[in-house]
Amino acid sequence: MLKVIKNRFEQGCRTSSYPKEPIKLYSRFRGRPVVNRNCDRAVALQCAQICPQEAIDPEKMTIDLGRCTFCGQCETVSGGAFVRFSQDFELGAANRQDLITDGELPDLAVQAKAHFKKLFGRSLQLRQVSAAGCNACEADTNVLNTPFFDLSRFGIDFVASPRHADGIHVTGPVSVNMKTALLTTYEAVPSPKVVIASGCCSISGGPFYGSEEIVGDLNSILPVDLYIPGCPPHPLTTLHALLKFFK
């Protein structure tokens, strides 16, 4: 008992005051990319060629955040001439098309459907489904339940049964072997319900695009309401998206 009390004092209170106070992530963190539209076309082309995710369109000077794994090679190779990754972790989007961007993202709070805020603003229960996720997305979603983020203080919880859920939060490129289980879970959630695609895998197949063993695009089988980019999305990216979209 004494050890419990001693450790309690040593640990103190660690819960973050986000979103009341902003959080600054370390300078190496790669968040929202900002494209230099005046960049030399040849440099943009070079970035597009080395991009392992084929996320860069050198003609339109855009990056597809639904494909990008934020590896940062395009920034390094172009010396920041084509793109610079900011530390802004606020990346959630309501439309797939908005993720193809030169760095500007629409305000998620405005995009959110009004009836969602009314229905789920005070309490949101989600069923998480990993559909071939590599466990990075899953782990950084789980982290939201640790004392620092403490997701439940916002009235948002991950629940065990789809029957108790208001929607599903999907990670992974949706393997063929998980497709039925995912659809069954979705059907088991009572309507009205939301679908959240978390991580570039669920949005576009991520690193596994082109594999015949995956579906690759969650929106092709279920209507996605909210996209959370990243590989994996930073826990703050997820937290921001959930708060803006539903609160």
Binding site: A132, V176, N177, S211, E212
Partner: peptide, 11 residues
């Protein structure tokens, strides 16, 4: 297991 199979070796 097998639900997570993404065909990586072949890819």
């Amino acid at each position: 297991l097998g639900y997570q199979h993404r065909g990586i070796e072949k890819m």
